[in-house]
């Protein structure tokens, strides 16, 4: 009995290792291809490691991508910060204050994060044009802030609901008003929620493509568009798109590996409460 259980344990471990290897295949292929020289890339020998490591694709890709990485950074940092800040306030209000129509407001807000953006695209760019926000990063930031509000509001609300009302009551007895409670009770407890929300938003915004491609002038385009350009425009030598993919993926993958715990919490909370 004990023996067979031991065997089962080993089997589980081996199975997991095999699956992990399968999940890592794309990484292997990406790295290997990106380090080959264009002449060496051949469909038949795609799996073999490069005979000579060629870092050039990375320097070329980085040179091409640098301005777009900067755009993406500005975009993701600003939009994340603003939508997180607004989401935090909204979450506070919606979890702790009984406003009229509160039961209707929340589903209506959350619906906004599920809509297919194709259904608002045409009016959106018309609006951006009329407000002269079209084309630049500020406009794109605005769009990401607005469409990020549902998820940030939802996440903060569910975090704040776990803060006991008594804590707030005690503070208001001490004379703290709306902002006082937020500042001295809610904010000090908001560190981890902010981290969760910011990681989630940053990843989403960094990876977004549809708004990025339709709402920006080329000078303000984020990295996803640059990658699509690189990979779709000239698919001659695959080393460049692969190196580009690595560069485009690096920030979010790093965040995920370093702060995976919070990333998962965002994932779980984003699924509402079934």
């Amino acid at each position: 009995m004990a023996k067979s259980r031991g065997a089962a344990k080993v089997l589980v471990q081996v199975l997991a290792a095999l699956l992990a290897a399968a999940y890592l295949i794309p990484v292997y292929m990406t790295l290997v291809t990106s380090l080959k020289s264009p002449q060496e890339i051949n469909l038949m020998t795609a799996w073999q490691p490069p005979s000579q490591v060629n870092w050039e694709s990375y320097s070329t890709a980085f040179k091409q991508f640098a301005p777009y990485i900067k755009n993406s950074l500005i975009l993701a940092v600003c939009a994340t910060a603003i939508s997180a800040a607004m989401g935090s306030l909204n979450g506070y209000v919606l979890s702790k204050y009984s406003l009229p129509g509160r039961n209707v407001i929340m589903p209506l807000i959350v619906f906004g994060m599920f809509i297919p953006y194709q259904s608002i695209l045409v009016p959106l760019f018309q609006f951006m044009q009329r407000t002269k926000l079209y084309g630049g990063l500020p406009g794109l930031i605005l769009v990401h802030v607005v469409y990020g509000l549902p998820i940030t509001t939802l996440l903060f609300r569910s975090f704040y609901e776990e803060i006991p009302d008594e804590l707030l009551g005690a503070a208001s007895i001490d004379g703290a008003d709306f902002f006082g409670v937020f500042r001295y009770v809610i904010m000090p407890l908001s560190g981890p929620p902010f981290l969760v929300v910011c990681i989630w938003q940053f990843t989403q915004i960094w990876n977004e493509f549809l708004f990025a491609v339709t709402l920006t002038r080329p000078s303000a385009q984020p990295i996803t568009v640059a990658l699509a350009n690189l990979a779709g425009g000239q698919a001659v030598s695959w080393n460049l798109p692969m190196a580009g993919s690595v560069l485009a993926a690096l920030p979010t993958v790093l965040i995920y590996v370093l702060l995976g715990r919070y990333f998962v919490r965002g994932l779980l909370a984003g699924a509402l409460k079934g």
Binding site: Y23, P26, V253
Partner: peptide, 15 residues
Amino acid sequence: FLYPMSLSFVVTGTI
């Protein structure tokens, strides 16, 4: 098993 989640669809698609 979870890392692909952090990639964008554009990166996944290219690879």
